[in-house]
């Protein structure tokens, strides 16, 4: 699914897959930090966004 999204032009760093146990608090924090850093670097997403206005 990530591959097809990337193929359609959604940047790879916007979509992340992870498996985190409820006992892995530090891993959760690390993954969220990594995701937010990568998404911030890309800036706001303009693709696949529905305009309801």
């Amino acid at each position: 699914m990530g591959n097809l999204l990337e193929h359609m032009g959604i940047e790879k760093d916007r979509v992340h897959f992870s498996w985190i146990s409820s006992a892995e608090a530090t891993k959760f924090v690390d993954v969220v930090k990594e995701i937010s850093d990568k998404v911030k670097a890309l800036g706001p997403n303009k693709k696949f966004v529905k305009d309801y206005s």
């Binding site: 990337e6 193929h7 359609m8 032009g9 959604i10 940047e11 693709k47």
Partner: peptide, 9 residues
């Protein structure tokens, strides 16, 4: 590029 692919689709 990512934008090029998006434009294509």
């Amino acid at each position: 590029t990512a934008d090029g692919r998006w434009k294509h689709f």
